[in-house]
């Protein structure tokens, strides 16, 4: 049992020290601040014209956000919103939405 706990904690340390590992929890917090107004924290409003993100492919979400950020994909609204996101934010947000059941 002790050994198990030790292994788990080691794993956790190595997991969290990896700067590229995305966190769905951090993604949820960021999504609540940045994305949920339009796309919903789970689903967009039944009345909203915005696409749902739940269960979308993680790489697609990351790529889209990066393109919005560097303006290779044009959108009045998304270019502004994505401009404030770091690489880590983008990974976390994608991780969060991709894990949601659509």
């Amino acid at each position: 049992m002790k050994l198990f706990a030790y292994t788990v904690s080691l794993l956790l340390i190595s997991f969290s020290s990896n700067s590229f590992s995305a966190s769905a929890f951090a993604g949820r917090a960021k999504a609540a601040q940045v994305c949920s107004q339009c796309h919903g924290i789970k689903n967009p409003s039944a009345e909203a014209p915005f696409p749902p993100l739940a269960g979308r492919d993680e790489l697609y979400l990351e790529k889209a956000l990066r393109q919005y950020r560097n303006k290779t994909r044009k959108s009045d609204i998304m270019n502004n919103i994505a401009a404030g996101l770091s690489n880590r934010d983008i990974n976390n947000i994608a991780e969060y939405y991709t894990r949601l059941k659509p």
Partner: peptide
């Protein structure tokens, strides 16, 4: 009006 106002009930009217 486009983006709505965060931390209020004001929704985004972009594309609506």
């Amino acid at each position: 009006i486009m983006t709505g106002s965060f931390e209020t009930l004001m929704p985004p009217f972009f594309a609506r």
